[in-house]
Design a protein around this nucleic acid. Structure first.
Length: 280
DNA sequence: AGCACCACCTGTGGGC
DNA sequence: TGCCCACAGGTGGTGC
């Protein structure tokens, strides 16, 4: 489900709601959602921990505790729901309940069960166990020159594959990648090494612009996404190519096509996004 | 190195 | 109209 903008919208909503609160005993409806440590250790260690900061790296939500970190990845259909009062609601996809000492609670719900939660004791353990395959956050940790340097190391990788690679830059997903490539006029199968310096700089600027718009409009709700308060995002109405196969490009009128790239459904405009002879 | 494919899950919508 | 399977916002592992 969520890419960087959706996670950031959740992070912003959650921050004022749970900052400073203290967790009490979690309720595990599906303990395999906890990737680390074991269920008993998770419950014992989280109980009594206070929330000191809500952060994010790429698509990971990172909750700093007075001791340790709670890391959450929503994967495809995960969802965090905040309730002012702890409640037993009819959610068959409810995986974990995280109540606070003041009676409010955070619920982790996930239809497809891909989402994961980690609880680690230190920054070192966070880097080792959770973020070992996660590169720099594209909004917080990559400036223009760094983006150019990183991209130059990946000459033969296709742009679609590269932008989806969380080790390269963290935060891009399938929707925002297609939107960025379209806005830049770059073909998803074009190899990174064939870009002119100006095209790389344009790509960097557009990535940040599109992600910022995604956040501004509350994220993209296509199937399941809702923010922590249960509201739908609004960016789906602004998508230029994603999910629009057979429809007309709003820039040039050509028919949007769908191909498979990096194993994902990939939408692009064949007129705006020419490959200019660089197929591989 | 890069890529294609599978696995993990459940739901649903497009196509026949 | 009804049924079925391809596909869905992600990631990690395999093998070529």
């Amino acid at each position: 489900m969520p890419e960087l903008p959706e996670v950031e919208v959740i992070r912003c909503a959650l921050e004022p709601l749970i900052m400073g609160k203290t967790f009490v005993s979690p309720v595990l409806y599906m303990s395999s959602t906890i990737e680390y440590p074991g269920p008993e250790e998770f419950c014992a260690f989280l109980s009594g921990r206070r929330v000191e900061r809500i952060g994010r790296k790429g698509k990971y939500l990172l909750i700093d505790l007075d001791r340790g970190f709670l890391a959450i990845h929503l994967r495809m259909t995960g969802n965090l729901i905040y309730c002012e009062r702890e409640q037993t609601h009819e959610d068959r996809f409810l995986r974990i309940g995280l109540p606070f000492s003041d009676g409010s609670a955070l619920y982790f719900s996930d239809m497809r069960r891909f989402g994961r939660i980690w609880l680690v004791e230190s920054e070192e353990e966070l880097a080792l166990r959770v973020l070992k395959n996660v590169g720099p956050d594209i909004l917080d940790e990559v400036d223009r020159d760094k983006f150019c340097r990183l991209l130059a190391k990946r000459n033969s990788t296709r742009l679609k594959t590269l932008l989806l690679d969380q080790k390269f830059i963290a935060g891009m997903g399938n929707i925002y990648t297609d939107e960025c490539l379209h806005r830049c006029g770059l073909h998803p199968l074009r190899q990174a090494g064939t870009l002119e310096r100006a095209e790389v700089e344009k790509l960097y600027a557009v990535i940040r612009e599109v992600l910022a718009e995604g956040i501004e409009f509350g994220g993209t709700s296509i199937r399941n996404y809702r923010n922590a308060a249960g509201a739908l995002g609004d960016f789906q109405s602004r998508l230029a190519v994603y999910g629009r196969r057979g429809e007309h490009c709003r820039c040039c009128g050509a028919v949007i096509e769908k191909i498979n790239a990096a194993g994902r459904g990939t939408y692009y405009c064949p007129r705006c996004q020419k490959i200019s002879g660089h197929v591989s």
